[in-house]
């Protein structure tokens, strides 16, 4: 009987501690503006690529919509908008202009906020057996109404690409992909980076957690 009580205590403690983190930073304390503005529609503009990895931009832009939508936001359709940017010679708009035309984004697409992604690192290392990819990304969500930063994060992700590795199998589990060709593996890495980075963004209006995650503690 005593043992059972001890076990019950253990269960309660484990339950209390299992979701808490050491830091006392919450989504609200870090990003109060987004709770005030409550953006609904997000325009993902062509990323800034500071690396020599030519396909990093494509990998990251083809994987963002599902991850960001799951957070409860309306992500403006990526392909039509990227075509529009290309046709108008604005594919490098984030790289070349000091000031984004936020008013135009609001007028043309009714975008409440713009998500800007900067790729600072996309390094592949190969060993005799396996290898890894190190990804360094910066995300910034900017209000088209006020120009204020509503949410931002810098994420460093290192993914081992050797299939026998624990991280890799974890990755495969999370994304539940069976195919393991090189291309799909990089798609998975891009998606994995988005999932990790977007962990700190407050939930959008279509999420059941909308306005309920203020006290959720985050690690920056």
């Amino acid at each position: 009987m005593k043992n059972i009580l001890k076990l019950l205590c253990f269960i309660i403690i484990v339950n209390l501690t299992s979701c808490s983190s050491a830091a006392k930073i919450t989504k609200f304390s870090e990003f109060p503006e987004i709770y005030k503005e409550r953006p609904e529609t997000i325009l993902f503009i062509p990323p800034i690529n500071n690396t020599t990895a030519a396909n990093a931009k494509d990998l990251l832009r083809t994987t963002i919509a599902p991850v960001l939508s799951e957070k409860g936001y309306y992500v403006l359709p990526i392909e039509p908008i990227f075509d529009f940017f290309k046709l108008n010679g604005a594919y490098s708009i984030a790289e070349t202009s000091d000031q984004l035309p936020l008013e135009k984004f609001s007028e043309f697409f009714a975008a409440d906020a713009v998500l800007m992604l900067t790729i600072n690192g996309w390094d592949k290392k190969f060993y005799v057996v396996g290898g890894h990819v190190r990804v360094d990304l910066m995300y910034e969500l900017i209000s088209t109404k006020t120009g204020k930063t509503l949410w931002e994060v810098r994420k460093n992700v290192k993914v081992d690409t050797s299939s026998s590795n624990q991280n890799a199998s974890l990755l495969v589990n999370i994304l539940s992909t069976a195919v393991n060709t090189a291309a799909t593996q990089y798609v998975d890495i891009a998606k994995y980076a988005h999932v990790l980075a977007l962990a700190t963004i407050p939930s959008g209006f279509r999420s059941p957690n909308f306005m309920k995650d203020k006290e959720v503690q985050i690690k920056l």
């Binding site: 990998l59 939508s69 195919v179 279509r206």
Partner: peptide, 15 residues
Amino acid sequence: LYYWGNYENTFYQKV
């Protein structure tokens, strides 16, 4: 919230 199937992979291949 949503079902995405194999969306990212076919989208990336297309691009």
